[in-house]
């Protein structure tokens, strides 16, 4: 794949002043009134990503990562009630209608869904599915696309999805998402359940394509090790709220939120690999059972009475929402 000329991103006002973000989300709130009443399943989320930048969303299952990805692609289910703003290249995504909206969804934003392995058409050959996007305006032929994701084999074009291995299908999906040179790629857990050798190839591939095509990357994962290799910035979510964000290297070496530290400790104790592994006690509650104030407080060893009031997310390059953050001497995992 070679880079083609692209429209420069518009300037947007994302609340924090003018910027040139590809994606700028501010105060995003999502509710499912029928299912969870007034509870905000995504609650006041704000973030932005520029061209060539990559942001990871991490957090345990049920924390709202996929919802955030769907919201950023304007693909939330109709039962969702959405508040706040999402600007894509300076345009309010939720104000777009008709053709414009379809154009953004089709060509501006590429998405690799979490349930990727079921999102290929089972009855259609891979070649036919790739030709479909070519007809819709991709500059790349089906074999260009397969080449770009490291699947040069002509056999793949003729194959139906079930005849491919998991890693091959995953790469086909990435090819489809990138086919129309999106400005934003949203990849929701694109490597879970792949063996590490295939996973490493996919991560390399994303890095290489991003360097070539300069898209903004929103990468959703619960694997901190993968995130540390791929993403410049990381946003940690718990219970639909951002709890800590900042440059990946800083967050991973010096976590300030006890939740971030807990995720890191669990991950690095498995790296060490003996004794009782570090865990975060308890589990993520369903939205109707979120505690008031800090939603993590019933699992948090640092929690005190004042955690019943919601901590404010600070501003700046490193943001944090916690009444009793760790100091750097508390360590976290080494």
């Amino acid at each position: 794949m070679t880079v083609s000329t692209r429209i420069q991103p518009h300037r947007v006002d994302d609340g924090g002043g003018a910027s040139t973000s590809t994606l700028a989300i501010s105060d995003l709130t999502v509710r499912f009134p029928k299912r969870y009443g007034d509870v905000a399943v995504l609650d006041g989320v704000g973030l932005s990503i520029g061209p060539g930048e990559s942001l990871a969303i991490v957090g345990e299952s049920g924390c709202g990562k996929s919802l955030l990805g769907l919201a950023a692609a304007n693909m939330l289910p109709p039962t969702a009630e959405v508040g706040g703003q999402i600007h894509f290249r300076g345009r309010d995504l939720y104000r777009l209608r008709g053709r414009e909206r379809r154009a953004v969804r089709g060509a501006g934003i590429g998405i690799v869904y979490q349930d990727a392995l079921t999102s290929l058409n089972p009855g259609m050959s891979i070649g036919a599915q790739l030709r479909q996007v070519f007809r819709l305006g991709s500059p790349y032929t089906p074999s260009d696309l397969l080449d770009a994701v490291g699947l040069p084999d002509a056999r793949i074009l003729k194959a139906k999805p079930y005849q491919l291995s998991g890693g091959q299908r995953q790469r086909v999906l990435i090819a489809l998402a990138l086919a129309r040179e999106p400005d934003l790629l949203i990849a929701d857990e694109p490597t879970t359940a792949l063996d590490v050798t295939v996973e490493a190839k996919i991560i390399e591939l994303l890095q290489r394509l991003q360097a070539e095509l300069d898209f903004a990357l929103l990468f959703i994962s619960h694997d901190l090790a993968i995130v540390s290799q791929l993403c410049h910035q990381v946003a940690v979510m718990y219970g639909g709220q951002l709890v800590e964000t900042g440059p990946t290297a800083e967050i991973l070496t010096n976590p300030r939120h006890p939740y971030t530290a807990g995720l890191l400790a669990a991950s690095s104790s498995l790296d060490e690999g003996h004794g009782t592994l570090a865990t975060i006690p308890g589990f993520v509650h369903p939205p109707t059972e979120f505690p008031s104030g800090c939603r993590f407080r019933d699992r948090c060893s640092h929690a005190q009475d004042d955690c019943a009031a919601r901590p404010v997310l600070t501003d700046g390059p490193r943001r944090l929402a916690c009444h009793h953050p760790l100091t750097s001497t508390d360590g976290g995992p080494r």
Binding site: E60, S61, T192, A193, H222, D223, L224, G262, L263, A266, S267, S269, L270, T276, L277, A278, T279, I280, F283
Partner: peptide, 19 residues
């Protein structure tokens, strides 16, 4: 693959339990 669908933190809980 008893823990590959789980988060690291929950995975650690299950692995501890098996041990």
């Amino acid at each position: 693959e008893p823990t590959s669908a789980l988060d690291v933190s929950v995975q650690a809980q299950i692995l501890n339990l098996i041990q």
